[in-house]
Amino acid sequence: MQAVLEHSPPAGATARTTKRTGFLLLSPSVLILLVWSIVPLIMTLWYSLQNYNLVDPTLHGFAGIDNYWYLLTDPDFLHALLNTLVLVAGVLVISIGGATLLAVLYDQEFFGRGIARIMVISPFFIMPTVSALLWKNLMLHPIYGVYSAMMRAVGLTPIDWLARFPLMTVMMIVAWEWLPFAVLILLTAVQSLDGEQREAARMDGAGPIARFRYIILPHLGRAISVVVMIETIYLLTIFAEISVTTAGGPGVASTNLAYLIYSRALLQFDVGGASAGGVVAIVIANIVAIFLVRAVARNLEA
């Protein structure tokens, strides 16, 4: 209520000029985003209904829903769709679960905490292509990778992670990139927790676990929903990590929708099919967006 009053619409001369000024200030951003989201969408829709292959000019003309038919009946598509969802969900669970615990850990005072914290958030600044290369070669390479060396050191046979568990491995790499982001936000949230509230809980006899469960976790709700929102935006469109590490393989074991469409468009030059995939990806993104936006909308009113 207080916030609403503080930011009640300030009046210029009249409500109408305020409205007009507000609209004028908003319109450049809205207009270009409108163009940016509508024009390519319409073009994609159009191509998706065409026979259009860059290397086969004899194939052209109206395709109707053929492209969609091929795509939706293609087992690769279902596989890619499933992979996309597994990737998003897996990374969200790992990064938020891990970050919640790490936020509580790095909220504690200990020697060199500042430096440790900087180390933890560092992966966020690494570009996806680099982190993918880093993990694929320096860390997980079956012969020269550090992890393989460690396994050999304790008498185990090194595993070719990317060949044996491609999707899991990609998920771990992406989680490594996004964990810091979640830690950054959740740590700030934990630190913003009112000290008196914690002390009151302690006076009430709450142990560390009860304090975490009943005081800290509910307090993190809003921050977690923001993390979910931002991370999902990026996780739905993971591309570089897959392209660099597994190229979607073996087979389509680690192909997500983004990579499937990419391989159709640029590797098989099937513009029509790729566009149909694009439309489907957009539809899926919108379904996810509706749920997400619902969940996060509360935060925007704060």
Partner: peptide, 22 residues
């Protein structure tokens, strides 16, 4: 003050109507 709109009626300062003055 002019920070809220006047829905109806007149506000006069020194006899001048200022409803629409910044």
């Amino acid at each position: 003050a002019g920070l809220e709109d006047i829905t109806s009626g007149d506000l006069l300062i020194d006899g001048q109507r200022v409803n629409d003055v910044e």
